[in-house]
């Protein structure tokens, strides 16, 4: 039930990094999905497509690294690992 807010925060963070880095476009985003993160990869992907519309991340590839270990400290989290951007020329 918290997906919407989570994805909004994620898109906002990506946009602010892209702005800082003077990027013109985000090509891909790689996230790490904890084993207990309460959201499935498909669900995350669907939300990402909707929430990125009209932002610098629209059309970006979403790479999801799925973690299976429920005992690691970050097991409940969704972490943005990196983003690939096109630089302003």
């Amino acid at each position: 039930m918290h997906e919407f807010s989570l994805i909004k925060a994620l898109i906002r963070k990506i946009s602010s990094i892209a702005l800082e880095q003077h990027a013109s476009k985000v090509i891909s985003v790689t996230v790490k999905l904890g084993a207990l993160s309460h959201i499935s990869p498909d669900h995350l992907r669907e939300h990402f497509v909707h929430a990125s519309q009209g932002t610098i991340s629209e059309g970006a590839q979403l790479h999801i690294n799925i973690l299976n270990d429920i005992n690691v400290p970050m097991a409940q989290d969704v972490t943005i690992e990196n983003i690939e951007v096109i630089e302003n020329s």
Partner: peptide, 18 residues
């Protein structure tokens, strides 16, 4: 056109429902 990968390691958080 040049692309670049930026390392982020940012935890996405639920920031409120309203």
């Amino acid at each position: 056109m040049k692309s670049r990968t930026i390392k982020v390691d940012y935890l996405a958080r639920v920031e409120g429902e309203g």
